[in-house]
Amino acid sequence: MPNFDEQIYAVLAQIPQGKVTTYGDVAKMAGFPRHARHVGKLLGALPKDSRLPWFRVVNAKGMISLVGESFTRQREKLLDDGVEVKENGVISLRRFQWDGQPS
């Protein structure tokens, strides 16, 4: 059985610039459906200097789930990435959601 962490990282590395996906979709694409919370925990444990685009993962409602400084950091990274993010952290999944296909 493939290693959970490695599979999640592999999916994460493929998310193109200017796109987002959900924790649940990352889990599903990695072969671990219904493990969205585990994805969130894994991303939360990434080192601060990680080059993986953790910030391109949002909740199923298309919102940033983080709070405080972490919320601001993710929002700024998404804005720099070309993703429109409202002040409250909402992103249009219809416009910006990655379908899992190579770009």
Rank of each mutant, 00 (worst) to 15 (best):
I8M: 01
V39H: 05
R75V: 07
K28T: 15
V83S: 04
E76I: 05
V39L: 08
D25K: 04
I91P: 00
S50W: 07
P53A: 02
G100T: 03
V57H: 02
L93T: 00
K19P: 06
A27L: 01
K41R: 03
L43M: 09
E6I: 01
R75K: 15
G68F: 04
L78G: 00
P2A: 15
R51Q: 14
S65V: 07
A45S: 15
D49H: 10
K61Q: 15
R56Y: 04
T22R: 02
V39T: 03
R95L: 12
A10M: 02
T21P: 10
S103R: 04
V85Q: 06
Y9F: 13
E87N: 09
I91R: 05
L93N: 09
A30V: 00
L79N: 00
L43R: 04
D99F: 03
G68D: 14
L42H: 06
G82A: 13
Q14G: 08
S65K: 01
G40F: 06
L52D: 03
F71D: 12
P16C: 14
D81E: 13
W98A: 08
Q97I: 01
L12G: 11
D25E: 15
D80C: 10
D25M: 01
M63T: 02
G82Q: 04
V67W: 11
D25Q: 12
R73D: 13
R75S: 10
A10E: 05
E6C: 01
P47V: 07
L79W: 09
D5N: 07
V90P: 01
D81G: 09
S92F: 07
R73P: 00
R37C: 02
L79C: 07
Q14K: 13
E6H: 05
Y9R: 03
Y9C: 07
Y9L: 09
L12T: 04
M63C: 12
K41M: 10
R56T: 00
D99P: 07
F32T: 04
A60Q: 06
H38R: 14
